[in-house]
Design a protein around this nucleic acid. Structure first.
Length: 593
DNA sequence: GCCGTTTTCGGCCCGACTGTTTTCAGTCG
């Protein structure tokens, strides 16, 4: 059993106990589920090495939960969980994904109406059976219906953060099948879109049949739509659809171009090819017979001769274009820019030097300042800013004036400890003092200015009152930007992909205000945020507003999400000069207020 | 159910909002 599966069961045990109004235990289970979900090492490995004792050493795990984990690892089941599930046999994860529905309400819906899943819930709401229940009403019905609608809107779409690791794992296994020369991820996943409908793979193989056999019989495959010599389609058990295409080596570049898309981009590219006297399809770029007869290295195909196709670069060259990074192939002016040699030099995946939003166990993070710093060093960063929450966010144990001053002392000590001579790579590394300070309802800050002005980096966030009117919300954030100590607005629209829409805010106005006040806007790299989204990034680039790409790490493993933020920045045409934490620390600090 | 330079027993993060009620339960962060 994987950590994710174990975490999910512990989480559900907590929710079941919550239904029965059991005090304190739900918290214990929820907490431990969170810890395990973001645990670096697989519990099965820990158990293999150190047995029950090692499991018990995980923070939050006591005798009882250790026993449950052991049972899960050994048998794949938990008696405790199954007994609870028997009492209330509902699809918990499905029902609680509806905004506003928690364990208590789910319990009432099951007891009174026998509702076990989303479909039954929707039917009950539509026939107005729900509003007469005690504690429910017309408004609750309305909200549930809205919640279901939002879930449905994203049905079948996976976030980049969910899809990419799965696709990479499969791509790696495919590439090891005998006779396979090369495998690439294509489609929207290759363009690093924030959500994807399905995953496409492209392969060169001497023996297509063996790779197709392998593909359709992978353990995670739940259903095979079809299987052929050049194309197979499957649905994974988790609901994700996947296609594998095997193409000949000589068409590989053309196939890449065709299957990376986007569709709109392809249409424009083919139109351009026609205009220049070519024909472009997934097999190659072709020129008419008479013109190319005498040239070498040209393969005949009907009345047309192939002039390019093995590589994408070759096709671009023949069309008089510069190579276009997959992330910006969205028919947003990139073809024209390519023809005129005006493509952006988009930020590279190795270009970040620092991370300006990092949480620690001083508040709701899992790891200490030192652990986060070491993890940052390990991924090659030169500096991080510690930005724990502030007191308004009581659930996260947010810092007040007294505790943040204490934190500064610890940061100073660890900085000394991490002097270059004490590090393996001997490279300077710096922990900076910062905050993720709540923006209160009136736009004022949750910490006094005399604290903020002492910090290296001040980030400000909206964490409450998401339902203010657009005008109020915009004014609120604008006021924060005008605070002379506020350097960055973190996750500026507050959206959670597939879960919660952004709060109402006028982004054009905020971008203009950011320009005026010299405030940085963050690209939060956490895959369920990716906030700013690509179109706003592009607007910032055009306006000259600087941005930062931050992990929003709440655990040492989270620095790997920076990749998603960089991808998002690339999709927004951002260059190194637009991203302040792609700069050395002095230059970055010099730019801030 | 977990945890301990306040405790091996007695605490456990808590304020705000919503929608239901007419003082409060449930949910969220």
């Amino acid at each position: 059993m994987t950590n994710q599966e174990i975490a999910k069961i512990l989480q559900e045990i907590g929710e079941y106990l919550e239904m029965q109004d059991v005090p304190f235990k739900p918290r214990a289970y929820e907490k431990v589920a969170e810890v395990i979900a973001s645990f670096q090492e697989e519990l099965s490995d820990i158990y293999k090495k150190g047995g029950l004792k090692a499991i018990g050493e995980i923070p939050g795990v006591g005798a009882s939960i250790a026993g449950t984990i052991e049972e899960l690892l050994k048998t794949g089941r938990s008696k405790h969980y199954e007994e609870l599930k028997k009492k209330t046999p509902v699809n918990l994860s499905e029902l609680s994904s509806v905004e506003g529905l928690g364990p208590k309400k789910i319990n009432v819906l099951y007891r009174k109406l026998g509702i076990t899943d989303l479909k039954e819930l929707e039917a009950a709401v539509k026939t107005h059976k729900v509003k007469s229940l005690e504690g429910f009403g017309a408004k609750t019905e309305e909200n549930i219906l809205k919640g279901i609608g939002f879930l449905k809107l994203h049905e079948g779409r996976f976030s980049l953060g969910e899809a990419l690791p799965i696709a990479r794992s499969i791509s790696e296994r495919l590439s090891k099948v005998e006779g396979v020369e090369r495998v690439e991820i294509a489609g929207s996943l290759r363009r690093m879109k924030e959500t994807i409908g399905d995953a496409d793979f492209l392969a060169i193989a001497k023996d297509p049949k063996s790779v197709m056999d392998f593909f359709v019989s992978m353990p995670e495959v739940g259903h095979v739509y079809g299987k052929g010599e050049t194309k197979s389609s499957v649905k994974l058990k988790n609901g994700m659809d996947m296609d594998l295409r095997v193409v000949p080596k000589e068409s590989y570049g053309a196939a890449m171009s065709y299957f990376i898309g986007s569709k709109d981009h392809n249409v424009l590219l083919r139109q351009l090819a026609i205009k220049k006297g070519f024909k472009l399809n997934e097999y190659g770029l072709f020129e008419e017979n008479r013109k190319t007869k005498k040239q070498k290295n040209i393969k005949k195909e009907g009345n047309w001769f192939k002039v390019a196709g093995e590589t994408e670069e070759g096709i671009y060259e023949k069309l008089g274009m510069k190579y276009i990074p997959p992330e910006i192939r969205e028919a947003q002016g990139e073809i024209e820019a390519s023809l005129n040699d005006q493509l952006p030099d988009v930020i590279g995946y190795d270009d970040l030097k620092g991370d300006l939003q990092v949480q620690t166990n001083w508040t709701d993070g899992k790891n200490s300042i030192e652990e986060m710093a070491k993890a940052a060093i390990a991924v090659g960063l030169d500096y991080i800013v510690i930005t724990d929450h502030t007191k308004r966010l009581a659930m996260a144990n947010g810092l007040d004036e007294k505790r943040i001053r204490q934190q500064w002392k610890e940061i100073d000590e660890i900085n000394k400890k991490l002097e270059p001579e004490n590090l393996k790579n001997k490279k300077p590394f710096k922990i900076l003092k910062g905050t993720e300070c709540d923006i209160l309802k009136d736009g004022s800050m949750d910490l006094p200015d005399e604290i903020l002005e002492k910090l290296d980096v001040v980030g400000a966030s909206v964490h409450s009152l998401f339902n203010l009117s657009k005008e109020e919300q915009t004014e609120r954030v604008k006021k924060a930007m005008n605070n002379p100590n506020v350097d960055i607005i973190f996750h500026p629209t507050g959206r959670l992909i597939n879960k919660r829409p952004a709060y109402e805010v006028d982004m054009d106005e905020l971008i203009a205000e950011a320009k005026k006040t010299g405030t940085v806007l963050e690209i939060d790299a956490f895959p369920d945020r990716l906030d700013l989204k690509d179109e706003y990034i592009r607007k910032c680039v055009k306006t000259g507003v600087k941005m930062s790409i931050d992990s929003d790490a709440h655990a040492a493993v989270h620095f790997n999400v920076l990749e998603f933020g960089i991808a998002q920045a690339r999709r927004g045409w951002a260059e190194k000069k637009d991203i302040v934490n792609a700069w050395p620390v002095e230059k970055m600090l010099g730019m801030l207020k």
